[in-house]
Each structure stands twice: as C-alpha cells, then as structure tokens.
Simulated scan of single mutants.
Amino acid sequence: MNVTGLLAETRDIEGLDLSKMALTDVLAAEPYRFRNCDLTRADLSEADLVGHVFEKCVLDGTDFRGADLEGARFDGGGGAGTRFVGAELTDAVFTGVDLSGAQFGNALLTDVSFTGCRMIGAGLTGSRGTSFFLSRSNLTLADLSGCSFRKQEFEGVRFDEANLSDCDFTGAVFTDCRLIRARLIGTKFTKADLRGADIGGPDDGQLRALTGAIISSAQAAAILAIRGLTVL
C-alpha cells in the first residue's frame, strides 16, 4: 500500500518516512497519531490538524505554516527550523520537543504549554495570544520580544542571551531560572520575583530594566560588588 492509501486506511501511523511530502490534501478529517515518523521538510501548511498527536517524530524544517493545530500534542522528537508561522495553536501541548530555531511569528499561542523543550534560537516575537506557558525549557538566544508573561510562574527556564526586549514580566515569579546576558530593552519587571533567578552581573542598562523587581540580599550584594562596593 502506498503512503496515500495508508493515510486513508488508518489514523495510527508509526515509523513512516513522510519526509518532503506534500500532506495537506491527503490527510483525512479525523485526528492522526504519528509515532516515530520522519516529517523532515514535509508540507503541512494550512492543514487541518486539530487534535493530532506527534510522538517522537523528526520535524526538521517541517512546514506547519497557517495550519490549525488546536489541541495538538507533540511529545518528544522535534528538529531544527520547524515553521509554525501563522498557525493556530490554541491549547497545544509541547513536551520534551526539540524546537531549536522554530519560528512562531503571527501564530496564535493561547493556552499553549512548552515543558522540557529545547528552544534555542526559537522566534516567538510577533506571536498572538497572551498566555503561553514555559517550564523547564531552554530558550537561550530565543527572540521573545514583545511577549507578555504577566503574573506567570517560571520554573527551570533558561533565558540566557535571549531577546526579552519590551516583554512584560509584571508580577511574574522565577524559580531556578537564568537570565544571564539577556537583552532587556524596555522590559518590565514591576513586582516580579527574581530571587530564584540567576541574573548574572547586569550592566547599567539591564539594571535599569530591573527597576521594580524583587531580588535577594545576595543578588543585591553581587550587583554592588561588581561596581566596587562591599556590603557588610
């Protein structure tokens, strides 16, 4: 049976090589469960993928642009440069997925969760929705400029060298997080609790961005020590 016939026959797909295939028009309406499939550079743009499940799939360069992924679930797997530009991702769940270099510009990210994900260099600037959640994920060098995280709780998230310009962290709480050398132009930290974050040695510009944040006495002492002052 060819690939098109198999996709018409069953909704449980395992171990299939779908790389570089145009799949938008060959998928049936009911949700699929893809396990251990190779979707490298597959074209799923504008596809109806509501409720679909992707388990340990290879997603290098997979094209989900404009797709409807409401309630979709991604468990493990992933790859570099996956494209979610303009996609509908409301209630989608990403767990343990490699999303390095993934692009989410203009995607709707309402109530989306990213847990245990590798998101180095990912681009989330320009995404829509004000409530996507990050936990135990690595966003080193990611671009989150302009995103709102008001009153959110972050645990185990790395924002090292990430672009957090114009982000709103008002009232957010950071636990076991890192913000070393993050870009903080216009970033709001009013009443944000940074006592559980490694903020490194902020320069004067970064320090101005932290105005209104809550930090520990140890963090304050470290900041002053960098400036040649000793706290007794």
Rank of each mutant, 00 (worst) to 15 (best):
E161K: 15
A142W: 03
N138Y: 09
C177W: 01
L179Y: 07
V157Q: 10
D166L: 11
R181S: 12
T110P: 02
R118P: 07
R178K: 15
G123K: 05
G121I: 05
I180G: 09
E161P: 11
Q152A: 15
L134I: 06
A142R: 04
F114G: 05
K188Q: 10
K151R: 11
F174I: 08
F159D: 02
L109E: 09
S131F: 01
R128T: 04
G116T: 07
A172P: 06
S137M: 13
F132M: 10
F189Q: 05
F114L: 06
G116P: 02
F132D: 08
F189E: 03
S145R: 06
K151H: 15
L141W: 15
G121N: 03
G121A: 04
L108Y: 11
S148V: 06
R150M: 09
G126A: 02
G129K: 09
C147K: 10
S127H: 07
T110G: 04
I120N: 09
Q152K: 14
T187F: 06
G186Y: 01
A172C: 05
V112W: 04
G146T: 11
R158L: 14
K188M: 05
M119K: 02
S113F: 07
C147A: 13
T125F: 04
S148H: 00
F133I: 14
C147W: 06
